[in-house]
Structures are given as C-alpha cells and as structure tokens.
Amino acid sequence: MLQIIIIILAVAFILYTILGGADFGAGILEIFAGRRGERTVSKAIAPVWEANHVWLILAIVIIFTGFPLVYATLSLSLHIPLMVVLIGIVLRGTAFTFRYYDVSPDKTHKYFTSFFEISSFITPFFLGITLGAMILGDIPPDNAGSFSERFILPWFNLFCVAMGLFTIAIFGYIAAVFLTGEAKNTPEQRKYSRLSKIFLSSTFAMGLLVFLSAEYNNRHLLADFFGSVLCIISFSLVILLIPVIFYLVNHPKTIYLRIAIGAQVALIIFGWFAMQFPVIIFEKGGTHLTFYNTQAPYATLYQLFIALIVGLILIVPCFYFLFKVFKGSDE
C-alpha cells in the first residue's frame, strides 16, 4: 500500500512536470521567441492549465497526509522560496486568464503578458531551487542554528541555483516540443522545432552544471548516480531518445512526439527517484527524511490509498475526455 501511494505520488510529480512544465514553458518561450506565438500558446493552454496544475495540489495533499514530517520540514525550512513559488503561481495563473478573457484587449494586455512571462520564468526557477534544497542536504535537522543556517543557506547556493536553471530549461524544452505539435503553419512549426533543439541543448548543459555544482557544494551526486543501476539505465534511455526527438520535431507526428517527450521526462524523474530512494529530503548530518521514517500511521495511509484510487478512477477518464475534446482534432 505504501508502495502504491509512493508510485501515485511519483506519477503525480511526473505529470505535473510534463503538463505543468509545458504550461510554464510556454510562458518561458514567449520571452525568448517573441510574442508572435501568443495566440498558439493561449489556445494550447487555456482549456487545460487549471487541470494541469491540480497535479501539484494532489502531490502536496499526498505529502501532507502521508508524510507529514516532510511537509512540515519543507514548509518551515524552505518558507522563503516556497512563498515566491506561491506568488508566482498566483500571478501567472491570473495574468494568463486575465489576458485571455479580457473582452476588449487594450494597453493593459501588455502588462498581463509581462506578468505572465516573468512569473512563468521565476516560478520554475524557485521550484527548482526548492527541489535542489531537498537533494543538497543543507537543511538542519530540528531547524537548529542561526537564521541564515535555518532559512537561507539550505537553498541559497550554487547547486540550488543550477537546479533552478535546469528546471527552466527543461520546462522550456517540454513546451517547445509540445508546441511543435500545436503550431498552425510551417514557419511557426519550424520556429518551435528550432526552439526544441536550443532548449534541449540548454537542458543538457544545465544538467551538467547541476552535477558539477553539486561537487562544488560537497554533495557527491555523481557517486550516487553511478551507484544506482536503475539510474544509469534510465539516463541512458534519456540520451537514446534525443535523436528520436530530433527526428520527430522535424517530421511532426504529434502523438509519437508527445509520447517520446513524456517518456524522456518520466525517465529523468524516475532516475532521480531511483538514485535517492527512499530518501525524500536529505538533511545535514545524515538524519535524512525517508518515505519510511516519515510515513503516517496505517489507518491514514489506508484511507489515503482509497481516496487516491477512487480519485484516479474518476479523474483519469475525465482527463482523457478533456484532452480528447481539445487536443484530438485540430479544427
């Protein structure tokens, strides 16, 4: 049962990265590719963005119900970056909706767009920083120490910044690949296919930076990486998928392209999971928070399990229907 809850949490995390990532990424691409793609972006995101972001809420609910100590530690030690993430989520979602639903666009449209783009950039950056802080292991156990040791240094360092940049790059990459399939005409499609390649290269570069900066911050991620067979296999598959995606963005077969990018992102996250399982948060001094030492009592996990299974039975067909209605046929 615990295993299934962990799997559902991982799936929610992967889906949020892919779907939410594509949403954030679309905003990031607007910054780099100019605003001419705005209509494509808006049309692609509008019907689905709220549903996409519910995966984050699902993940949070699983964590605070099933692994309460993890949630309490995260929200105490990483208060500052999480606050920024929250404000980013609010500004981004509302700016997007305001811009899309404004019945008579005028000068303010420009401001909504700026808010949308800036928050699309900052939110993933701080999401990455938060994730980085969980991996790095500078969070003091029992929240002891000076103000900066407790609330600043765990996330304000080279490694976490690298993780933030990596998150931005990969979200941009996911969005570019998705939008290749959404593009309405050849020049636009070419633009996104070019962006896919640029962002893939940056993702790769930022990935390297993550590993290098980890060594710099005394976190021997490479050793962990080579210590996990599953991790090596999944990252090898990620690399093998690169030429496939390069081929597919030039010869758009939307469905295969999406499967390929989905698989690639899922494998990256799976590899990361495999590398650090069962640890969720690394803490200073080696008392790490794991799925096992933070799990809620049996009765709670059992109820959570039932709620999740019933929830998925309800949600999955609805989600399928939503995507079928809006993504299936191009009018």
Binding site: V61, F64, T65, G66, T300, L304, A307
Partner: peptide
C-alpha cells in the same frame, strides 16, 4: 493534523 484530516483534503 495532516495524517488526521488529510482524508477530507484528498477527497
């Protein structure tokens, strides 16, 4: 409270 009232939150 998380483990106690997580259930209504999941629903």
């Amino acid at each position: 409270a998380g483990p106690i009232i997580g259930m209504p939150f999941s629903w």
